[in-house]
Design a protein around this nucleic acid. Structure first.
Lengths: 141, 141
DNA sequence: TTTATTTGTAACTAAACTTGTTACAGTTAT
DNA sequence: ATAACTGTAACAAGTTTAGTTACAAATAAA
């Protein structure tokens, strides 16, 4: 383990919700499709709820539904809801500040990090959940 | 720990080599600037050597130097040498193949993954090690 | 009002990965 | 011959991840 698959599962979960948009979907049902434990799904749904992508209802005949139409949800929003975009990590320990390279490299890498994040975000923003649904349908053929 | 900082360290290491391009640089010297153990640096240098970015020499008065001019080394090459570009991971377990979403979502996410990787690669390819050196110098002011 | 169902969440485990560290074999200049 | 290096194996400690059990709280339905 130890490699973040939350975005993959989140896209899967939201696609399930979109295809069952008429009612509230239960975490057990989603978990069966994702092939995992319902608690894993509920944990993820909490993050998606914080990001205002879904609405959950507790109690009997509760469940979750999308907060918006699939065409109004971008993959960028999904990504931000469940991951913090870091293509690479900074130095584990602060570099030697007495070395001219060590003193300045962190700030440069930090700027680069942000620039890449923005690039990824722009790419992911090109796709909506609706696009994913259409791809799933097309794939079926 | 448990967050890959190899790219950050690789850029740091290569910048050190570029600024000491006249001779062979020892792992102990680099480790002091990076503030880590020389073995960590040597391990990284092995990866950079496999990618033909540096040349190392064993034995007394050995060390490492760049294999090419800094302006001919892109950050994209560095990234590929030390990381395998994965912005997100696939499902840990294969989704339920009896569910239309579960059956198709993996292929779609895989294509998306590759597309994002290409985007990141293009972004990183815009910068060379020479650019980083210039940024380090400029930062110093 | 009682009961069954469902989310939310805490606590724990096992696996994977990362860096740091020690140790040492092999290579090379002096 | 000796000292100084790299390359690499082996292990420890810390972090993160998904999976799991358990249960409190909320809610619909009987």
């Amino acid at each position: 383990m130890a490699a973040n698959s939350r975005f993959s599962i989140a896209v899967h979960v939201l696609t399930m919700l979109a295809k069952n948009c008429d009612g509230r979907v239960k975490s057990d049902f989603i978990a069966e499709s994702v092939n995992t434990n319902p608690v894993v799904i509920r944990r993820l749904l909490c993050s998606l709820q914080e990001a205002n992508l879904v609405v959950s209802q507790v109690g009997a005949s509760g469940g979750t539904c999308l907060a918006r139409q699939p065409k109004k949800i971008t993959l960028s929003e999904i990504y931000n809801a469940v991951s913090h975009g870091e293509i690479f990590s900074p130095h584990p320990k602060t570099p030697n500040q007495d070395c001219p390279v060590g003193k300045n490299i962190e700030a440069i890498l930090c700027r680069l990090q942000k620039e890449i994040d923005k690039t990824v975000e722009q790419k992911l923003a090109q796709y909506t959940l609706q696009n994913v649904i259409e791809m799933v349908e097309r794939e079926k053929v």
